[in-house]
Design a binder for these strands. Structure first.
Length: 865
RNA sequence: GCGAGCUUGGCGGAAUGGUAGACGCACGAGACUUAAAAUCUCGAGUCCGCAAGGACGUGCGGGUUCGAGUCCCGCAGCUCGCACCA
């Protein structure tokens, strides 16, 4: 760019300048305990994994948070707005294996790079609170939380079948298995028996469910997803004794326990279905090769997507029979069924075809009896025949002995009473939620602070020996856990008896790290995990912002952890996040030609066509979709900042789309944002140069003052409503009004222009903070920084309008508009409306039935004839 | 299958039950310029009309209302989540 077209705002120079000013003044620092003189506001964005580069999704996320933080700050809140790094995890180990770089170095280098980008974006963060979960100052405190939870009975060690990811060579939580595959590796998951640590999240199942109702500033769908994930269902456990059990079927194997939500239909028993992994199924397989083959087949197909897709119900008759506990004369067969899950309920179901579609399909397929026990409302017991559809909706019990004539809800209670009396079952609440297995056979994570002693068993590492530091000298030359291979690290003396013992070499699931960081931010340097006065003062987070992908796992774990920390005395709140906002993705068009996918910077628009920059050859444009490396439809924030500046990037991501929706990244949108910033700076600079600072108000400025004060109100409303796109639109309007006012002359216009310019500085500041400071410095040299000024107040006087334009409708159709003074008397407005030429013309010869007048809004004439 | 959400110009989107399409992008015309860029001004839902004006118009079909993008009922399409949950 030549000198003659030099930009009004030189972001290369000025943005770092203002960032330095804020830093020099510690503008964004807040004390550990919130100050008493102001209300507190805690804004938090989900902290990033240090993958190497910030991506535009981060820019959107953190810009949204920064707008909230800066706005609330200007509104007089003490704003906590911290940033940190979710720094443990697999990619660092993969980098170590692939590139021979230590995970710690790789991670810290990435953090340095990404921190630089965040700082270059000018976010109002308290950098003194920065934490990285991979540093002992953080994970050591996490170890303390763990040993406290262990002491409080919130942790358990269990042998359990775990989801084993054969590629990553680690255990995964149920939540991390997606369609039978590892969420990260995509490998088919195997079942393996290991001794594992579990956090007893199920202990809090009821409060975690109940308190969802209190989270009224969370998106409905997130609450629904959590509710379903927790999965409370009321029913009964019923024990079916084997009818004439064969020899060897004793102790636990002489009966089958099922879970059912429909004990009322027990007289409709057709079969008992057990999982292929059920102990009884294994027992049968010992002597029955066909059963063994069927089980093997189920296991092979068990979790793959195709099976769920096809959903074919298949079974194998074991030849065993069970007696109905309510009527021991009646027996039913036991089938191994591929649709019965071992890890839900008891791994066994009782089949009642009459009341359950799946059971009906199964019974029909294998020609099992279909006892009819549910009579749909309006049907006659004599004539009712069950077709292909199981009974649903209103019904009463029949053919069910003592339950005949009852509705299902009443019958359930009666059956449970009877079963409990017989000792054959009891009413229970069953949860879908499992305890949280947190052991991972990984190096780059927080060591689990336990020592295993042959004599004493697992011994928690005592406080004075914490933190257990991750050794640095490890090798990645073979699969499995490097901690396990380390020559010396794991060999220690038992803290109890002093005999040689070994350390636990498993590390925590990284979701543990992110389950309490919001609390640590309130006292990031404390010797204890939290300082209760700080944590209780700042928590809950008032506004949490992040992607929807964490709707279940992270948010549920964090809610659990907060309760567990409450129980162990580290804080006394239960819900960590009072307000949750899930922002949409950033998308981009994709481009390809014969050579493959092309990066956005390799193509350019020529008229209606998109062509390859180097060759001018046409390029196919794909729909806008989530940015991905494979489609090369990515944009680098660093690149954007270098070319257009931080404020342009910030303004653009806020401009068009409402934040909860996906937004499309476009080059023209970025250019427009850059243009607006320059235009605004030019306008304000022109005001500073032309209009004297001591100008006085006068009537020539009234119109502009009205626009200015309405903008103050509208931008405030938009930011309160979390719709920065609307705030942006209002700011465009005020800017255009100021531009129009350049042509106005007369007493007072200068003062009005100065006021508008000043207000523009204050109102754009949450979005474009550097530009705002720079404009203010030009407009009012030597005065307070924008960031130290309060949000402007709209004056009522200027919100009132001089005249209002009222639409005049006839039968609800707009026929004209009239200008009247605000709050004009009804008679005057109606008279003016009737005088409007077009309205008068259309009213002629019509009979007026009704006149509707909504003050300052609309007039509607209802006519006939 | 269950659940949540979405559907408004060429595009992103705005709109406490009250003048649909604010604001921006793209587009067109003009000004400035030797020219281009930048900047500025103006225009624009569709159709009919020179115009005044009119008809139609927020996925589709109904309803409530003086008045519906907005509320209610039904349907379709798309997106996301869960999914053999007993």
């Amino acid at each position: 760019m030549s000198d003659t077209t030099a930009p009004a705002f030189d972001f290369q120079d000025r943005e770092p300048f203002w960032q330095n000013e804020w830093k020099r003044r510690s503008t964004f620092a807040v004390p550990d305990v919130p100050p008493a003189d102001r209300p507190k506001y805690y804004v938090l964005e989900m902290f990033p994994y240090p993958s190497g580069q910030l991506h535009v999704g981060h820019v959107r996320n953190y810009t949204l948070g920064d707008v909230v933080a800066r706005y609330k700050r200007a509104r007089g809140f003490a704003v906590m707005h911290p940033m940190g790094w979710d720094a443990f995890g697999l990619p660092a180990e993969n980098a170590a294996r692939e590139r021979n770089v230590h995970p710690g170095k790789w991670t810290m280098d990435n953090i340095a790079t990404m921190r630089g980008t965040l700082q270059r974006l000018g976010f109002s963060l308290d950098w003194d609170r920065e934490i990285a979960t991979c540093l002992p100052e953080y994970y050591g405190k996490q170890q303390k939380l763990f040993t406290d939870m262990l002491a409080a009975g919130l942790v358990e060690r269990r042998d359990s079948l775990v989801n084993w990811d054969p590629v990553d060579e680690t255990v995964l939580a149920n939540e991390q298995v997606v369609d039978g595959r590892g969420w990260r590796s995509g490998a088919l998951i195997e079942k393996k028996k290991l001794s594992q640590w579990f956090l007893k999240i199920t202990k809090f199942a009821q409060p975690l469910l109940d308190d969802l109702k209190t989270l009224d500033r969370w998106p409905e769908r997130v609450r629904t997803m959590q509710e379903r994930w927790i999965g409370r269902s009321e029913g009964a456990r019923v024990r079916f004794a084997l009818h004439q059990p064969p020899a060897g079927y004793d102790e636990d194997l002489d009966s089958v326990e099922v879970f059912t939500t429909r004990p009322d239909t027990l007289f409709g028993l057709s079969f008992v279905g057990i999982s292929a992994e059920h102990p009884l199924a294994r027992k049968v397989a010992e002597t029955n090769p066909q059963a063994a083959a069927f089980i093997e087949e189920c296991r092979r197909l068990g979790t793959s997507e195709e099976v769920i897709e096809a959903a074919e119900k298949r079974g194998f008759d074991t030849g065993l029979r069970v007696a109905n506990p309510l009527d021991p004369e009646k027996t039913a067969p036991v089938w191994i069924a591929n649709f019965v899950l071992m890890d839900y309920g008891t791994g066994a179901v009782f089949g009642c075809p009459c009341g359950d579609q799946r059971d009906l399909d199964f019974a029909r397929k294998y020609d099992l009896p279909v006892p009819q026990v549910l009579l749909p409302a309006g049907q006659d017991a004599e004539t009712f025949v069950l077709g292909k559809k199981a009974v649903s909706g209103d019904a009463t019990l029949f053919n069910s002995g003592f339950l005949d004539g009852l509705d299902p809800a009443t019958a359930r209670k009666k059956v449970i009473e009877r079963l409990e009396g017989l000792g054959a079952g009891k009413g229970v609440v069953n949860w879908r939620l499992r305890d949280w297995g947190i052991s991972r056979q990984r190096y780059w994570g927080c060591p689990i602070p336990v020592i295993h002693c042959d004599a004493c068993g697992p011994v928690p590492v005592p406080d004075e020996l914490l933190p257990v530091i991750l050794p640095e000298d490890v090798t990645f030359d073979r699969p499995g856990n490097p901690l396990d291979h380390h020559p010396t690290w794991k060999h220690v003396d038992c803290p109890h008896c002093g005999k040689p013992a070994v350390r636990e070499t498993d590390t925590f699931d990284t979701f543990v790290d992110s389950s309490w960081y919001f609390a640590r931010f309130t006292s990031p340097h404390a010797e204890t995990p939290t300082v209760p006065a700080a944590a209780n003062g700042w928590l809950p987070v008032d506004q949490y912002i992040g992607g929807i992908e964490h709707a279940i796992l992270h948010l549920l774990y964090a809610r659990f952890f907060t309760r567990a920390m409450h129980e162990t005395g580290h804080l006394d709140v239960d819900e960590p996040f009072a307000g949750l906002f899930t922002q949409g993705m950033v998308t981009h068009e994709s481009y390809r030609d014969d050579s493959g996918w092309l990066y956005p910077e390799d193509v350019e628009r020529q008229g209606d066509q998109v062509v390859r920059r180097e060759t001018g050859t046409p390029v196919q444009v794909g729909r806008s979709e989530k940015m991905s490396k494979s489609k090369r439809n990515t944009v680098s924030p660093v690149d954007i900042i270098e070319r257009f500046g931080a404020d342009t990037a910030r303004w653009f991501v806020l401009s068009d789309s409402p934040p909860e929706r996906d937004m499309e990244w476009t080059a023209s949108g970025v250019a427009a944002a850059a243009r607006f910033g320059q235009r605004l700076h030019r306008l304000v600079s022109a005001v500073a140069a032309r209009d004297a600072a001591d100008s006085v108000h006068g009537t020539a400025g009234d119109d502009l003052r009205r626009v200015t004060h309405r903008a103050i109100a509208a931008v405030g409303d938009a930011l309160e409503a979390f719709t920065p796109n609307v705030a942006v639109a209002r700011l465009h309007e005020l800017t255009s009004a100021l531009a129009d006012a350049e042509r106005v002359e007369g007493a007072g216009i200068a003062a009005a222009r100065r006021e508008a310019a000043q207000v523009l500085c204050l109102l754009v500041a949450p979005m474009m903070p550097h530009l705002a400071e720079d404009m203010m410095a030009v407009l009012e040299p030597g005065s307070a920084l924008v960031v130290e000024r309060p949000w402007p107040e709209a004056e009522e006087k200027w919100l009132a309008v001089q005249s209002v334009t009222i639409g005049v409708q006839i039968l609800g159709k707009l026929r004209g508009t009239i200008e009247v003074p605000p709050n004009a008397p009804k008679e005057d407005v109606l008279a003016a409306a009737k005088n409007e030429p077009n309205v008068a013309r259309l009213l002629e010869g019509k009979r007026l039935v009704k006149e509707i007048h909504v003050p300052n809004r609309i007039v509607n004439f209802v006519v006939a004839g």
